[in-house]
Design a binder for these strands. Structure first.
Length: 210
DNA sequence: AGCCAGGGTCTAA
DNA sequence: TTAGACCATGGC
């Protein structure tokens, strides 16, 4: 059976390795903006508005909401970003001394931050070995023919053999995104994709995992 | 025209 | 504990 590490190596041979952002605060606010939204909208927002930590704290709620508008759910997202800005300003100096579980529970207590967003922030902003399990990852596992019954099982498979390597965790998530974006939308890659044999949307044809 | 895009919260049973 | 409604915008 294909191991998580082998899957990673295959993906890494297909796509460039990519990290979210080297700036922790950028990761934090973009992880909120991207919720249920195309990445292009996040780029648009990041390009047209200065959402640095100091800029956000100087903005009114109305200005922040206006800045978040292109990403949809602007009222909710701007409120979450506001809450995260004060949270981040207070926690960033002491974060090194905090347990990952402790950091995560603090994140989850913020309205608008759920499991996936918390995982993104822990991994890319605080460099903790947390696997970001999103809909694309579940879809990928499904299409590979795995039948897990819970996210707990999926994480157990995915994290095994990665030695808690933060860089690998980070690259892995982007690689899965690249694959799933390319999968059924770009025929040339699709027909030559070693992870898949046919291109019909919704097909759950297992691929050879030997 | 209508569906989807990297979610999360709240409610109901 | 799980399913479904809801939130709101841009792109195709």
């Amino acid at each position: 059976m294909l191991s998580s590490r082998e899957l990673y190596d295959r993906l890494a041979s297909l796509f460039p390795l990519r990290w979210w952002s080297d700036d922790p605060w950028t990761v934090v606010y973009q992880s909120v903006l991207v919720q249920h939204t195309a990445w292009s909208n996040v780029e648009k927002t990041s390009a047209s508005a200065d959402l640095s930590l100091s800029a956000v704290s100087a903005m009114s709620d109305e200005e922040l909401e206006r800045a978040a508008r292109p990403c949809g759910f602007a009222k909710a997202k701007s409120g979450t970003i506001r809450a995260l800005s004060s949270w981040y300003a207070s926690v960033r100096t002491e974060a090194d001394g905090l347990d990952t579980d402790e950091l995560k529970s603090r994140l989850l207590s913020i309205k608008g931050v759920g499991q996936e967003t918390a995982s993104v922030i822990l991994l890319y902003a605080f460099r903790r070995p947390v696997f970001v399990l999103d809909a694309y990852t579940r879809q990928l596992l499904e299409r590979l023919g795995f039948s897990f019954s819970s996210d707990c099982q999926r994480l157990e498979y995915l994290e095994k053999g990665l030695d808690g390597d933060v860089s690998v965790f980070g690259y892995y998530h982007w690689l899965i995104l690249e694959l799933c974006k390319a999968w059924c939308r770009k025929k040339p890659l699709c027909s030559s994709c070693p992870l898949r044999q046919d291109c019909r949307r919704g097909s759950s044809e297992p691929v050879s995992a030997s």
